[in-house]
Computed example of a mutant assay.
Amino acid sequence: MRTVLVVNSGSSSIKYQLIDPESGERLASGLIERIGHGAARSSHRQGGATADRTVEAADHTEAFREIVRSFAAAGSPLPTLGVAAVGHRVVQGGSDFVGPTLIDDAVAERILELSELAPLHNPAHAQAIAAARLLLPDVPHIAVFDTAFHQTLPAEAYTYAIDLAVADEYGVRRYGFHGTSHQVVSQRAAELLGEPVTALRQIVLHLGNGASVCAIDGGRSVDTSMGLTPLEGLVMGSRSGDIDPGAILHLLRSGMSADQVDGLLNQHSGLRGLSGSVDMRDVRKAAADGDERAALALRIYGRRIRHYLGAYLVELGGADTIVFTAGVGENDAAVRAEVCSDLDWFGIRLDEERNAAQDSGPRVISSDASRVAVLVVPTDEEAEIARQAWESVAH
C-alpha cells in the first residue's frame, strides 16, 4: 500500500490526513491547534479510535513532531504506513507554479516570498513545509497550489485595469483560489454525466465559509470570482466580496488604519457583518423568525451568486452544467433553489424533489426538461491533493 500524508497548515494549526491516493480512503486524520499559544490541543483519529490530548507546540516544528508521535502512539509509526509523499496545500503560487511541484530549497523560498500576496496563508504553509521536510527528510514533499488551476485564465480575465507597470511591479492581477476544489468537482461532474470534461462548459459554485465561482470551458478555468486575494467576489461567511475600492479609501481617509480595514473586510463582513453569524443555518433560522437583517443578508448572498452566474453564462455562451459544492452548496437546498429560480429562459430548471432530497453523494437535481444539468457534487480537496502528489512521484 502507498499513502500520501496531506498537510493543510494555518497560522496556529495543522490539519492532516493520511490518504490512499488511488481510492481516496482516509486511513488517519488529525488536527493540532493553538500552536504558539501555550498548551496546544491535538486530536488524532486512526483505526476507529480518537486520541485527544494537550501538547507542547510552540511552533510548527514542534507541532509536526507531535503528529509523528501521534501515529506512533496509535501503533502505526509513519515509516510503516507506506508514505510515498507529503502533499502540502499552498494557497498562493503566484504566476510561478502551474501544477503540483516538488519542493526543494528554491521552491520553499519562493513560497515564502509569495507571502506578500497571501500574508495570512503562505507564511504558515512555509513553516509547516520546513517542519515536515526536517522531520520526514527521505519522503518527497509536493506543493499543490490553490492558484494553479486558474493559470489558464486569459489575460483579459486576470488583468486589472490599472497602470500595467504598477501591476507588474507589485504582482497585482487575478490569481483565483479554490482551484483544487474547482478542478476535482468539474472532473467528477463530467464523470457523473458520462461526458469527457473537455466537452463541457461548466459553472462551479464553491459555496462554503469561503466562496467562489469558476467558469470552466473544456476542463480549463477561464474566469473566476476571487482575485488578487480570496476577498474578491461572492459574499462569504466573514468576507465582504466585491466592494467599491473607493469605499476602502474612504474608510482609510476617515481614520481607520489599513489593519482595521483588513479586519473589517475579511473577518467582520459578509454574513457575519450583515446578520451577526457566519453559519448559514443560523442566518436562515433568524430570517424565518423575522430578523430583517438576516433576511437582507440572504437576499444579498443569493443576488451576488446570480450576478456571477449570469456573467459566466454569457462568457461561456451558455452552460452544459451548473455544479454546487462545499458546505452550503452541498447542504442548503434553499440556496440552490433561490440561485436557480426563474431561469427557465436559460434552460435551467430544478426538480424540487431532487433538490430537497437528503443525499450526501453526487447527484443531478435538475428536472428532465432542463437543458442545463444542475448537479450537487461533494468536493474533496484533500483526496485531490493526495492524487496529484502521488502522480507527481509515481512516474
Rank of each mutant, 00 (worst) to 15 (best):
R2N: 14
R2S: 15
S9T: 13
S11R: 12
E22M: 13
E22W: 04
G30W: 11
E33W: 02
I35L: 12
I35S: 07
G38R: 01
A39S: 10
A39Y: 00
A40Y: 05
R41L: 12
H44M: 06
G48Y: 09
G48D: 07
A49K: 15
A51E: 14
R53Y: 04
R53Q: 14
T54Q: 15
V55F: 00
A57S: 07
A58D: 11
D59N: 15
H60Y: 03
R65T: 11
I67E: 05
S70M: 12
A73M: 10
P77S: 02
L78Y: 06
L78H: 05
G82K: 06
V83G: 01
A84Y: 01
A84T: 09
A85P: 11
A85V: 10
V86T: 07
H88A: 04
Q92Y: 11
D96N: 13
P100I: 10
D104R: 12
V107T: 15
E109I: 04
R110H: 07
R110W: 01
R110P: 02
E113M: 12
L114I: 05
L117C: 06
A118V: 08
A124Y: 10
H125E: 04
A128E: 06
A128I: 07
A132Y: 05
R133W: 02
V139N: 05
V139G: 01
V139K: 02
V139L: 10
H141S: 02
T147E: 11
A157W: 05
A161Q: 14
I162P: 00
D163T: 10
D163G: 03
A165F: 09
Y170C: 11
Y175N: 00
H182Y: 12
H182D: 06
R188W: 06
A189M: 07
A189E: 05
A199M: 03
L200H: 03
I203A: 01
I203T: 03
L205E: 02
H206R: 09
C214M: 09
A215F: 05
V222W: 07
T224F: 12
M226R: 08
E232I: 03
L234D: 03
S238T: 15
S240R: 04
G241L: 07
I243S: 06
I243E: 08
D244I: 08
G246R: 06
A247L: 14
L251A: 14
M256N: 08
D259V: 08
Q260V: 02
D262H: 14
G263I: 03
N266G: 01
Q267M: 08
S269L: 10
S275R: 03
S275T: 09
V278F: 01
R281M: 03
R281G: 00
K285M: 07
K285G: 00
A286G: 00
A287K: 01
A288I: 00
D289C: 00
L296Q: 08
L298N: 01
R299C: 00
H307S: 12
A311Q: 13
V314E: 11
I322C: 06
V323C: 10
N331T: 04
A334C: 00
A334H: 07
R336G: 06
R336C: 07
R336V: 04
C340V: 04
S341I: 03
F346R: 12
R349E: 15
D351K: 05
N355K: 12
A356M: 09
A356R: 15
G361M: 09
R371N: 07
V374E: 08
V374K: 04
V377T: 07
T379P: 09
E381I: 08
E384Q: 15
R387M: 09
R387F: 09
Q388L: 15
S392H: 13
